[in-house]
Design a protein around this nucleic acid. Sequence first.
DNA 1: TTATTAAAGGATAATTATTATCCTTTAAGT
DNA 2: ACTTAAAGGATAATAATTATCCTTTAATAA
Lengths: 137, 137
Amino acid sequence: MKNILEIKNNLLKYNLKATPQRLCIANCLDIHGHMNVDELYFLVSQEFPTISVATIYKNIKIMLERVFIKEVKIPKQKSVYELNKAQHSHIVCSKCNKIVDIQLQTEELLRSASQISNFTLNESAIVLNGVCPECSK
Amino acid sequence: MKNILEIKNNLLKYNLKATPQRLCIANCLDIHGHMNVDELYFLVSQEFPTISVATIYKNIKIMLERVFIKEVKIPKQKSVYELNKAQHSHIVCSKCNKIVDIQLQTEELLRSASQISNFTLNESAIVLNGVCPECSK
DNA sequence: TTATTAAAGGATAATTATTATCCTTTAAGT
DNA sequence: ACTTAAAGGATAATAATTATCCTTTAATAA
Ligand SMILES: [Mn+2]
Ligand SMILES: [Mn+2]
Ligand SMILES: [Zn+2]
Ligand SMILES: [Zn+2]
């Protein structure tokens, strides 16, 4: 549960001016975790009714460049964005579309993959799909 | 190494008319493995110079619906498409952008993920990133 | 074979997504 | 408070994708 001041300082660390609109975007991502362009535009519009959708795009673009945020590509869905935090994987519920972070032990998998393929591996993007506990009740 | 007749019969199995253009698309995917829209349009245009890009899109759309092909989403790249084959994962070389299929043992990972998250898991989309043996020489 | 017909192709319009431009405003640093 | 580069808003431009309309053709069956 970060506060606005924390988020502001974080923006400055990434050489991004902490404007109210931008703070709102970062705050939305902090609160909701993963959001696509439309969701972000809708939510930020509540607080800043005159914000241009171009501002949303411009922010996503520069925030990605500075790696303040990251893009997560999910099969059959629009890309979502999240604050850049520690490496992790994702699970998506095919019923309610909820996206959840999960910390997986990937060393073994990477070692094995590296051995099979002779690639020198560094990153992994893992998206698992299933039904969340709420939806399976 | 499939031949055209095999591909044709496969199209029919998916209730897709085996037109020359469509056969060419399927054949390209069979030969090249993973292709994005532009690559597909470029290559098919060689053989059918008058083909419309809309035809490429229409085919991708319906082939996805029928699950004759699948979309693979790679971080920081355009989506690529591939023939629907046995479940597998992908490795991408960050130097030459080559995409390679890899058969990974995911049972252990899925079991662990399921245990941590309480999700009932079924599918997994795994994209690993690194440097291929050719590029690391 | 030939006839029938739904599906598919081509051209292009329409829509949607994303980026660029221009001018005004403002946050950050002095 | 002053300066200035960065960012916002409006909107144009471009790129990506889908829809439409009309013609052609592959599949099926008589
Ligand atoms: Mn996440
Ligand atoms: Mn593949
Ligand atoms: Zn759910
Ligand atoms: Zn390589």
